[in-house]
């Protein structure tokens, strides 16, 4: 039940955020495209460091994906 509630809360938050999306003008895409805006888990160095914690923890996965598009990848 707790898991179900947590999932519902996340989905609700995602839908709320979806409604709050702002338009981005072409000259504003620079900040989104900057390499420091890429998700922290991307890149060879990050993959290696995530691999280290993945083999040291029983809970793995889920920190990657998304983050493309929006002029930010």
């Amino acid at each position: 039940m707790k898991r179900y509630q947590a999932t519902c809360a996340l989905v609700t938050l995602a839908l709320t955020a979806l409604a709050a999306c702002a338009p981005v003008r072409p000259w504003e895409r620079g900040a989104l495209a900057h390499r420091c805006m890429r998700p922290a888990q991307q890149g060879a160095r990050a993959i290696l460091r995530e691999h280290v914690v993945a083999v040291r923890e029983g809970a793995t996965g889920g920190m990657g994906a998304a983050g493309a598009g929006c002029g930010c990848d």
Binding site: T7, L10, A14, L18, C21, V24, R29, L32, A65, C72
Partner: peptide, 24 residues
């Protein structure tokens, strides 16, 4: 077998929210 779904939302030109759900 793993499936991951995600959404990246630009809330402001300097703020992005990512939501990622995965099942394996």
């Amino acid at each position: 077998h793993g499936v991951t779904g995600g959404a990246s939302m630009v809330l402001r030109p300097t703020l992005v929210l990512d939501t990622v759900f995965g099942v394996e």
